[in-house]
Design a protein around this nucleic acid. Structure first.
Lengths: 235, 235
DNA sequence: ACAAAAGTGTTTCTTATACACCCATGC
DNA sequence: GCATGGGTGTATAAGAAACACTTTTGT
């Protein structure tokens, strides 16, 4: 593990949106019962931290150009999880490097400072992959996240606060939608993020006045009502 | 240096306000010509990162309860300064621990990830102190900051962006003022921070409507005009 | 024709900005 | 009295929220 920076990690809160629900990506740690965590990893000695975060995300999502924001470093002294560490050691996870050579696991038994990133992805574009320490990687509804190791639940909470703060201001919501969508799709996303309903007409006016949407053809769904326009986010 | 976390540091942008000018605290590194830096330090193995930041600030300002906000981690791979490192080694700074025992300096010759904090202090309450690596610690006008080591100039820029974003929203400006001040004092601070003038009457109304100020007695300065009220920030 | 949902226009209210006036203070 | 800066009130403009109406679609 010598090519990584010691005692420093990255944890990513990957937000996805599907069926009017916000979801986050959760990994199940291999060889340990009921042990869930945020997708995370470490920083190579010669790697920018942002690049490291992209690498870690790419390993799980297969995506290259992800909207990513580093929002806070988590570094409480009690940020440890004795049960987790013990199980890792007992089950010999991480105990060999890429060449299969046994390595010292003592580096794990220290407090880590973790850099928290949140990412926004179009869930349809994601091809889930497991890294070597994942038993599985899955989308979980934001309100059904199980107990995670360390302070990962807190990291999610803080990521959500940050997301809400930046969401409208920086117009990052489009990263959660397919490239083409209806105004209703967008409004429902806003309503889910802010957990509050918006007036349809006022919402439409506000969004269109931003001049960031290109109106495309109508979307005929077969429903017995007026067909909505499709839009594409520009710039 | 074994009791610190390796390759992880803290750098603090300490904002002060005096004579209608924003100032930041800059240290001059001992034994190196023209080498300036942000007040910074390292994190003890059993120390919360926020506590570490407070310790580092206390060493320089003698203050205990500082408004502090961790705003970003800086971790580009090219975050090194060969000239600085070389000089440190040549001049034997940091080469002994508290007991005077020589220690290995190789830990310095690596890339560091730094946690950026900004602090707001009432400049009148600060009693400047030097830490063991400071030749001096001084207040510098924000627009007269010299070239600093590493990416410290960039850290200041980003801290200022963050300050402006949070300043009005979180009402943190009062941390830069004495506990008792006039409305004009407050307005001038706002004008400096946002680099824009505000209408006197509207500013007063806006601030008073926040219901966070207690009106005290008038302040008789001897000037040939109506004496302004003094205010105190509450809650 | 009708229900359902989309698009658009108008009114109302809230809030921010601009404008105007009077008051206290020391010379 | 008067110049100077402080406090307050009112008018106006801008933006958000509420309300209302018309249009399109498939049954």
């Amino acid at each position: 593990m010598n090519n990584y920076i010691d005692q420093l990690s990255i944890d990513c809160v990957v937000f996805g949106y599907q069926s009017k629900t916000l979801k986050v990506l959760i990994t199940k740690i291999i060889n340990i019962d009921n042990c869930y965590a945020l997708p995370g990893g470490f920083i190579l000695q010669n790697e920018d931290i942002d690049i490291a975060a992209r690498r870690i995300l790419n390993e799980r999502t297969s995506l290259d150009h992800i909207y990513l924001d580093q929002f806070k470093a988590f570094g409480k002294n009690n940020r440890r999880d004795q049960r987790f560490i013990q199980q890792v050691m007992e089950n010999q996870i991480w105990n060999t490097n890429q060449s299969g050579i046994k390595i010292d696991l003592n580096w794990l038994d220290k407090r880590f400072v973790s850099l928290g990133y949140y990412a926004l992805v179009d869930i349809e574009n994601v091809v889930l992959r497991k890294s070597e320490i994942d038993e599985s990687v899955d989308w979980v509804d934001l309100d059904k996240v199980p107990q995670l190791i360390f302070d990962h639940n807190e990291i999610i909470s803080e990521a959500l606060v940050e997301l809400r703060e930046k969401f409208d201001k920086k117009l990052i919501g489009f990263n959660l939608l397919p490239s083409i969508f209806t105004m209703r799709d967008l409004q429902e996303l806003y309503e889910v993020v802010y957990d509050t309903p918006f007036a349809r007409n006022n919402f439409q006016k506000k969004i269109l006045d931003l001049n960031v949407l290109e109106r495309l053809e109508k979307k005929y769904t077969g429903a017995a009502n007026k067909a909505p326009y499709l839009y594409r986010f520009i710039k």
